[in-house]
Design a protein around this nucleic acid. Sequence first.
DNA 1: TCTGGGGTCCTAGGACCC
DNA 2: TCTGGGGTCCTAGGACCC
Length: 420
Amino acid sequence: MPPLPSNPAVIRPRRIAHLDMDAFYASVELLRYPQLKGLPVVIGGGRRSVDDALLAQPERPLHKIPLRDFPRLESYTGRGVITTATYAARQFGVGSAMGLMKAAKLCPQAILLPVDFAEYRRYSRAFKDIILDIAPLMEDRGVDEVYIDFTDVPGGQREGGRVLARLLQKTIFQQTGLTCSVGVAPNKLLAKMASEFNKPNGIAIVLKEDLQDKIWPLACRKINGIGPKTDEKLQSLGITTIGELAQQDLDWLIDHFGPKTGVWLHEASHGRDDRPVVLESEPVSMSRETTFERDLHAVRDKAELGAIFTQLCQQVAADLARKGYVGKTIGVKLRYDDFKAVTRDQTLDHYTADAAEIRQMAGQCLKRVPLAKRLRLLGVRVASLMRLDEAQVHKENKPVAPIDKGEKAIDSIVIEGQLF
DNA sequence: TCTGGGGTCCTAGGACCC
DNA sequence: TCTGGGGTCCTAGGACCC
């Protein structure tokens, strides 16, 4: 067999960057409220408008609001969790995902700001547009993170990527006032780890030959994809660092973690990862869920639950419509007061984005779930999505069941539903 | 006064078809 | 008639990430 023709695009060593905004939500808030700089600030909580007091005086600019007018953590009651905490707040031991009530005990004087996703999304769009102008191969990984393929960007190979990383940092800071950290490496796996090395406002370059010195001493948990469960299992097997993981025999890893995870652990520990930078992707599902202010009972709180349920269905339907999708797998999610969760879903023979139809199907799913225990969360999900424009093409080819139930109001279905 | 909300991907069993 | 596969879809749960 003749040798395959060489493909320079494949052989060329990749330079992949991971760019991570520093303390993104907190930094955006500090642009609005610079008077909070250096203070313990916690962002989180539900939709209760803790900054009503601030907005109540529009003639007073935000940056002039005196500290005493900001709400404090100690006055919070509810089930929210911390989304972000500033460094000053972290000194007190509070951190991401911690319940606000618990945080209030550790640092009652901390200032509590509500999460303002609309504002964070604006800044997210802004910094991503800046990146796209400079380096067009960008993968969106959420509101504050991206991967960027430096390989073919002019200057992307200089100093291992440092020159381009510096340019991105500088431009983003000039245009938004926000700092970020960048890691550049031969692949996404290593780039992600590298971006943490010199936080905040740092750059780290990792080359293939740096594996032993820079990666192997790290805890296994630093690998994106090894979470608390896998880490615990690794620890129980006596493996703490990535280097120790790399020492393990592939067959031994497969025995303990299965073929897929076993191979992946082996590859990751050796710094190997050939995932491409993905520029565009289609959503798989859309959902809405809510945790109640107090646990609700399916029978005793039937009316309240029914109203919430309907609202969730309407929100999902609105999300689908706004983004231009239809779906055919409808499901519910419940979390009981003991925090155990269950899901039920069912697939239709046609696509829909209709609130009433979603409500009806979700109601069917709900009937298959035990409802003796009290509930703390209810969610509605639509999956198996298709873009609306494609769905319409399908519809022309072969007619599907009617999506529009017309004036058959949601209210009537709520009454008919017998859900609780 | 523990533990949000919105996602993706994987596994595993069963149904069903070829 | 019996046996054995493979492939795909559906469903439930769980790990993980931002």
